[in-house]
Amino acid sequence: MDQTILEVQDLRIHFELREGTVKALNGIDLVLKEGRTLGLVGETGAGKTTLAKGIMGLTAKPYGKIKSGKILYEGKNLLEMDKKQLRRIRGEHISMIFQDPMTSLNPVMTVGDQIAEAIRNHDKLSRVDAAKKAAEILELVGIPSARGSEYPHQFSGGMKQRVVIAIALACNPKILIADEPTTALDVTIQAQILEMIRDLRERFRTSMLLITHDLGVIAQNCDYVSVIYAGEIVETGTVHDIFRHKLHPYTAGLFSSIPNINEDVERLVPIDGLMPDPTDLPAGCAFCDRCRFATEQCRTEHPHLVNMGGEEGSHQVRCLRYKETREEGE
């Protein structure tokens, strides 16, 4: 069994605004194994980006508050580290690819300088050597090194995302957090970027947390999947567990709302309703208002994650009625 490199335990992040407390994350547990890819899937507003930023220590101040939990990187709690230790982890051990390449590069610095900045920050290199290494990394992500002296506005969206990836991989991190790395891109470019991430990841044996709302991306890139809903993990397991033996009605809903190439379906089945207001979460299961299996018990009793065994014995589901849904799923 692979070693655990990153573990999130019972992470709660709330945003305390004047209008009320937004409960963005409500007790998240995640396990990322060394060299593997964990997919985090969920709809907009489920807390995916909050989680990614929380792991990076980038929770928006002054409203964002980490209420409880641990983020263990190689057994050490990132939340207990001082700023200096955390800075050493960021970029060198854990780095992040952001969602929108259009806005995640500094418009007044050349891309070469932005990559070199990440390198020089962690390796004691001279300016010239760092520039040389930045040029190598640019070539690695498929950009001619001569373009290192250009500014972000001179690049296309796909090229910018390559630069963002180059920055993230500049120091050869152990963990890469990719927050919807292809959402803002053209479909044709999406495949290229994902393939590139996959290649580089395998080459450097980087573990990855891949955040997306695209199940196709999960199927192609991930070993494990966690489904997040209203700031909670509702189902987690291997890709096989989730794709073949999905148990949570929300997971099932996600699958039936995308087209399946093997079936001739006239209409897709969307999940009715909206995610509950994160300032006013229900007492029971967060999904009960949209769930066709929901009973009175679901409205009052908050479900816990239940281990269902599965392929590697790690398939877990947060549902009171998993027995019924299992029968239906199979």
Binding site: K53, M56, L58, A60, K83, L86, R87, R88, I89, R90, G91, E92, S95, M96, F98, Q99, D100, T103, S104, L105, N106, P107, Q114, E117, A118, N121, H122, V164, I167, A168
Partner: peptide
Amino acid sequence: MNQDYVDTARAKGVSERI
């Protein structure tokens, strides 16, 4: 301050002064 590239910079691990 709320621009994404500021997060990118922090994610690199550079000091707050930079």
